[in-house]
């Protein structure tokens, strides 16, 4: 992340050095007896915290408008706090007001800029939250994410499924489960390499999540198997959705790969989360073996 901010990393040092030079030319250093060490401690800590903010902004934010506001706001605060700390060591003649202005003015301006940046951050977060809603229904925990596809992994699926089953049962609504499986995925991996396989999984997950409603949850179940939880959806609706998905997924097939994707649909009525997933897996196995046709017509 920090590579995007080379200018921002290099800026504070010359700025603060300039402040120090100016202070040294205008004023005279105090003798140790005159220094109030409590003030130094307090102002020093404030300065350190402001520098920490600046570092956090640089290390965690991508380059962009909101980041600029946050950065320059914090930078002004750092400058102000720095000069504030300097005047504990340097005494300025009473008739020169420059340093006192330089010390007091940047702080409120910096605060305003920082606040404006925070508002921008808040807006940005709202948009991101909306985008994530389909994926992130219940809780936020990065340990539950699959690092490859950035989808939620199976632990999360269990938690969501258990909760949704109870809710849907209480309100007597229907809940459907879609399980996708890539046929012959290990052979594909073997032929084209693990990188191509990973790439395919990422594309597949992106394509699937683009087709979801906000209330649906897409999870990577295991390996080449994905599960979509369709809230408030009957079996009939889920079948239509699955057919739509199948058609949509044909876009994925490019010249070298012609992978087939099996999709099975299961409406869950009485079972627990674990049983429901097991039952759906059995259906998938039957569909792969050709005993029961998958809902999707092979293209």
């Amino acid at each position: 992340m920090w590579r995007q901010h080379l200018l921002k990393i290099n800026l504070p040092l010359p700025l603060l050095s300039a402040g120090l030079m100016l202070a040294l030319t205008l004023g005279v250093t105090k003798s140790p007896a005159e220094i109030d060490w409590f003030d130094v401690l307090g102002e020093g800590i404030v300065l350190l915290v402001a520098i920490l903010w600046l570092t956090l902004i640089i290390s965690s934010r991508p380059a962009g408008r909101v980041t600029e506001w946050l950065y320059y706001g914090s930078l002004l605060l750092v400058c102000s706090f720095f000069l504030d700390l300097l005047d504990e060591f340097i005494r300025y003649p009473a008739h020169i007001r420059t340093m006192s202005w330089l010390e007091s003015l940047p702080a409120p301006i910096g605060m305003l800029a920082l606040t404006y940046g925070l508002i921008g951050w808040h807006r940005e977060q709202r948009v991101i939250n909306r985008q994530l809603q389909g994926r992130e229904l219940l809780l936020r925990d990065h340990r539950l994410l699959d690092p490859l596809t950035k989808l939620y992994a199976v632990d999360y699926l269990y938690a969501v499924l258990a909760r949704d089953l109870e809710l849907h049962r209480a309100e007597q609504r229907s809940l459907s489960l879609l399980m996708l499986n890539i046929r012959q995925f290990s052979a594909f991996n073997r032929q084209y390499g693990a990188a191509a396989g990973d790439d395919y999984l990422i594309k597949l997950s992106e394509l699937c999540s683009s087709q979801l409603r906000a209330s649906d949850v897409l999870c990577r179940y295991v390996g080449d198997r994905f599960v979509i939880l369709l809230a408030n959806t009957s079996l009939q609706q889920a079948k239509i959705f699955a057919q739509h998905m199948q058609q949509h997924l044909t876009k994925l097939n490019h010249h070298e790969s012609n992978l087939k994707i099996d999709i099975v649909v299961n409406e869950i009525t009485r079972l627990t989360a674990k049983q429901a997933l097991q039952e759906t897996e059995e259906m998938l196995k039957a569909s792969k073996a050709g005993i029961a046709p998958s809902v999707l017509l092979p293209s």
Binding site: V154, Y221, V222, G223
Partner: peptide, 10 residues
């Protein structure tokens, strides 16, 4: 482990 099905699937 919690992700027992991972072993079975692979």
């Amino acid at each position: 482990p919690a992700n027992e099905q991972l072993f079975k699937a692979h």
